[in-house]
Simulated scan of single mutants.
Amino acid sequence: MSEPKPVWDRPEPASRPAPVPLSRERIVAAAIELADAEGLAAVSLRKVAAALGAGPMRLYGYIDTKEDLFDLMVDAVYGEVRLPESTSDWRSDLREIAHETWRCALRHEWFAELLGGRPHLGPNALRYLEVAFATFGDRDVDTIMVAFGALNSYVVGALRTALAELNAERATGMTEDEWRLTRGPYLAQMVATGHYPALAKIMAETTYPDPATLFDPGLEILLDGIAARLA
């Protein structure tokens, strides 16, 4: 049994008169609006069809599964990433790619949930990869893969940390500072045991920056490491 073709490699149904005209573009736009408002878990073919005023079965002419829909949604967000136009400075280009990915993922919080794992193969995602790999020029392929993998892991990890903190605030109704105050007496008691000297130093001297504040300094440390490897 042959594997089904990727959704981008399957033609859409021919246009026909209908009270509610459909297209993959309209379906994806409705799904993204739903995910932005209610989260990825709220996205279903039934809800997307209802948002479009169409019957759920009509969507199956355009997509076969919810996974197809997620693939199309992810690729649409990749299409929003403003990629550098030149590849003359790999460090500047990678910094711009990281910032743009961060920006788009914070606008579409569900996007980070679908990053990682197997690579996305939609046309916008492939263009994203093409530009990212091209920034390294004619360097060793294995080094490029390690460097880009490290960058991608950092951006995804930072995004998920930032979004987890944001979701915790929504769930508890407490800001990070307010939550920390509730845990202060317990942490002070544990630190007083003398078993956690490194942690005690951090707690005494840190300003407790939020993930967004940490993103740029952490990115620069990573880029320093890539520069050292490329050298």
Rank of each mutant, 00 (worst) to 15 (best):
M1H: 02
M1I: 03
E3I: 13
P4F: 09
K5Y: 10
D9E: 15
P11H: 00
A14C: 12
S15G: 02
S15M: 00
S15C: 02
A18G: 13
A18E: 12
A18K: 15
V20W: 04
V20H: 02
P21D: 04
S23N: 08
R24T: 02
I27A: 02
A29M: 09
I32F: 02
E33N: 10
E33H: 05
L34A: 02
A35E: 05
D36R: 11
D36C: 02
G39S: 06
L40K: 12
A41C: 04
A42C: 04
L45S: 05
R46A: 15
K47I: 06
K47F: 06
V48D: 09
A51F: 11
G55Q: 10
M57A: 15
M57G: 14
L59E: 07
G61N: 11
I63E: 09
T65E: 01
K66E: 02
K66A: 12
D68W: 07
L69F: 08
D71K: 13
M73Q: 05
G79Y: 02
E80K: 15
P84I: 01
S86I: 03
W90E: 14
R91F: 08
D93P: 10
R95H: 13
R95Q: 11
E96D: 10
I97S: 02
A98E: 03
H99N: 10
E100P: 01
C104T: 14
L106I: 14
L106A: 11
H108M: 00
E109W: 00
E109K: 05
A112E: 06
A112S: 12
E113F: 09
E113M: 13
L114S: 07
L114T: 07
G116P: 04
G117P: 12
G117D: 00
R118E: 08
P119A: 04
P119S: 05
L121D: 14
G122P: 06
L126N: 11
Y128C: 10
Y128N: 01
L129H: 12
L129I: 01
E130A: 12
F133D: 13
A134L: 12
T135Y: 05
G137Y: 04
G137C: 00
D138S: 07
R139E: 06
V141T: 08
D142S: 03
T143L: 14
M145Y: 09
V146H: 06
V146D: 09
A147C: 01
F148I: 07
V156A: 15
G157A: 05
R160G: 00
L163R: 07
E165K: 07
E165N: 10
L166P: 13
A168F: 01
R170D: 09
T172W: 01
T172M: 08
M174A: 06
M174K: 13
T175G: 07
E176D: 13
E176I: 10
W179N: 12
W179T: 07
L181T: 09
L181G: 01
G184N: 11
P185K: 05
Q189A: 14
M190F: 08
M190K: 05
G194R: 00
P197W: 00
L199F: 11
K201P: 07
I202K: 09
M203N: 08
M203Y: 14
E205K: 06
T206P: 11
T206Q: 13
T207G: 00
T207L: 13
Y208L: 05
A212G: 08
T213N: 03
F215A: 00
E220K: 08
L222H: 01
A228Q: 11
R229S: 06
